Amino acid sequence: MTEVFDISQSYDTEKILLGIAGFYPTKIRRGLLVSLVCSTVVFITFTQFASVTVYAKKQISDVTKISEIFLFSTTQIAFVNKLINFVVKNENTVKIDGLLSDTVLTRVNKHESRMLRNEIQKAKTAAVLYRILCASVVISYGIFPQFDRTPGKKNYPFYGEYPFNPDNYYVAVYIVQVCVVGVSAWLNSTMDLLFVKLTTLATVLFAILSERIKNASNRRRNEDVTVDVALRKCVVYYNTLLTFVGLIEATFSYGIFIQFLCSAIVICLTGFQMMVINFTSAQFILLVFYFICMTCQVGMYCWYGQLVMQKSDEITNACYHVNWNEIDIKSQKMLIIIMERAKRPSTVHAAGVFPLNLATLMTVRAKLCEQQLKHGQFTQHLFLNCFYIGFFLT
């Protein structure tokens, strides 16, 4: 007994959040209000980035301030690149939506439906935890500057140069700066989680394909669906799934590459900041939240990329469960075709430079640890390793 499972509903939250800002190709994007929101988001982000850049030129001799400014600037560079890349590749998201509405992928039995629901629920739980972490960073930016106040000086979430005295409009400037961080976190985390949920779907769909291949030889000639027909459907399903993974890579590849480069720089700069500021200051707590958020972001991409590669690699093992000696020659040839293709696991790459898997994550960790030890950041080195241990245990 089969049913049609609406796979695309698993990332409805991300579609709505990106659609509100006008960056997801849905019908709502055509509205005047949405276009205004989209323009406001871009304007505020670039204005604040320009303000920080101008201020940095005047503080070139202050290493501590420059590192803090560069920390924010690098994060914004990664965010803007990801956003531009996503908008440019908007047509791919339309193709993904169409592909996930195809009955080849949506028609499942009760067992497969349970598999989909379980994995989607896990992805949604991870999404909630990640959003809480991002929200903690935004709240920290809004609250902690007030705890580190010095007499006669007004603190802001981050430095900036303005054509007016910001102290005269302290509350307004403060709110705008927090909003910039909030909008960046909102859109950045949403694009991250869209990738997470799409790769989760790819992972469970590969698992479903493995189950179907294993059960293919259980067919009998007198059944409506013979071994030959079952394997034909598996080939079509496999091709559709490979197209889906290819679209995921094409949509997010460049943005992930820039994110990785910027994240490595940000993690190092955060470690430097944690070393030069007072451990008892509120800013140190902010940096701890920020450090965890950035390492979690890199870890998520590699972890879910690893799951896709791992599940696609299991297709070969599934083929070995088929009683090939009991099926006809035509079915045996189709089985060989599936096995030959499965020799090369589906892997999501970052701009074709490196794959998103645990090997890449460990390489990044090793390089960061090497740099931290080189510069005497022993506390940050220990913190980074403890975080990765906790990440994998979770």
Results as ranks from 00 to 15, higher is better:
Met1Tyr: 02
Val4Asn: 05
Leu17Ile: 04
Tyr24Ser: 09
Tyr24Cys: 07
Ile28His: 08
Arg30Met: 10
Arg30Val: 11
Arg30Leu: 11
Gly31Val: 12
Leu32Thr: 13
Ser35Leu: 14
Leu36Asn: 10
Cys38Ala: 14
Val42Glu: 12
Thr47His: 11
Phe49Gln: 14
Val52Tyr: 06
Thr53Gln: 14
Val54Phe: 08
Gln59Pro: 01
Ile60Met: 11
Ser61Ala: 13
Asp62Arg: 01
Asp62Tyr: 03
Thr64Cys: 06
Ser67Leu: 09
Leu71Pro: 00
Asn81Pro: 02
Gly98Ser: 10
Gly98Cys: 04
Leu99His: 01
Ser101Asp: 12
Ser101Ile: 07
Asp102Cys: 07
Leu105Phe: 13
Arg107Phe: 11
Asn109Val: 07
His111Ala: 13
Ser113Val: 02
Ala126Thr: 14
Arg131Gly: 08
Ile132Val: 09
Ser136Asp: 01
Ile143Tyr: 14
Phe144Glu: 11
Pro145Ala: 15
Gln146Lys: 15
Phe147Ile: 05
Phe147Cys: 07
Thr150His: 05
Pro151Asn: 12
Lys154Leu: 06
Pro163Phe: 04
Tyr169Met: 12
Tyr174Asn: 15
Ile175Phe: 11
Val180Gln: 04
Val181Met: 05
Gly182Tyr: 01
Leu187Met: 11
Thr190Gln: 00
Thr190Leu: 05
Leu194Lys: 03
Lys197Phe: 02
Arg212Thr: 12
Ala216Gln: 04
Asp228Val: 07
Lys233Asp: 05
Leu241Arg: 10
Leu241Asn: 08
Cys262Phe: 03
Thr270Pro: 03
Met274Ala: 13
Met275Trp: 06
Phe279Thr: 14
Thr280Ser: 15
Ser281Gly: 06
Gln283Ile: 01
Phe284Lys: 04
Leu286Gln: 08
Tyr290Gln: 09
Cys293Lys: 11
Cys293Phe: 06
Thr295Phe: 11
Met300Trp: 12
Cys302Ser: 09
Cys302Pro: 04
Gln306Ile: 06
Lys311Phe: 08
Glu314Lys: 13
Thr316Trp: 13
Thr316His: 12
Val322Lys: 00
Val322Met: 02
Lys333Cys: 01
Met334Cys: 03
Ile337Lys: 14
Ile338Tyr: 05
Arg341Asp: 04
Arg341Phe: 06
Ala342Gly: 13
Pro345Glu: 03
Pro345Ile: 02
Ala359Val: 14
Thr363His: 14
Thr363Gln: 14
Gln371Arg: 11
Lys374Gly: 02
His375Leu: 10
Phe378Ala: 14
Thr379Ser: 02
Leu384Phe: 10
Asn385Gln: 08
Asn385Thr: 08
Cys386Glu: 04
